[in-house]
């Protein structure tokens, strides 16, 4: 079961990263980055469960908050409002 979860998450990261590399425009790349951060947040919580380390949940929370601020900043910059 663990292997299945890890394979699914790895495939998700590969597809999203491929779009980030191929993406014809800048906003395609940022969209890929946005979903990569969401996948990573979920992945960190899953890893916390596998390793039984509570601290990874805190890492995941902070990561989620910081990535949200980061993506918003990039979006505002793209729009020219920064």
């Amino acid at each position: 079961m663990t292997i299945f979860y890890l394979i699914m998450i790895a495939l998700a990261i590969i597809f999203a990263a491929a779009r980030g590399l191929l993406g014809p425009t800048a906003s395609d790349r940022i969209v890929a980055l946005d979903s990569l951060t969401t996948i990573t947040t979920a992945g960190l919580v899953l890893l916390a469960f596998f390793f039984q380390r509570y601290i990874y949940v805190d890492v995941s929370l902070v990561y989620g908050v910081l990535s949200f601020v980061g993506v918003l900043t990039l979006a505002r910059y793209m729009e020219g409002g920064l």
């Binding site: 699914m8 998450i9 495939l11 998700a12 597809f15 999203a16 890929a32 979903s35 996948i39």
Partner: peptide
């Protein structure tokens, strides 16, 4: 999660 990445 996988389907979302595939959609992207």
């Amino acid at each position: 999660l996988f389907l979302g990445a595939l959609g992207i």
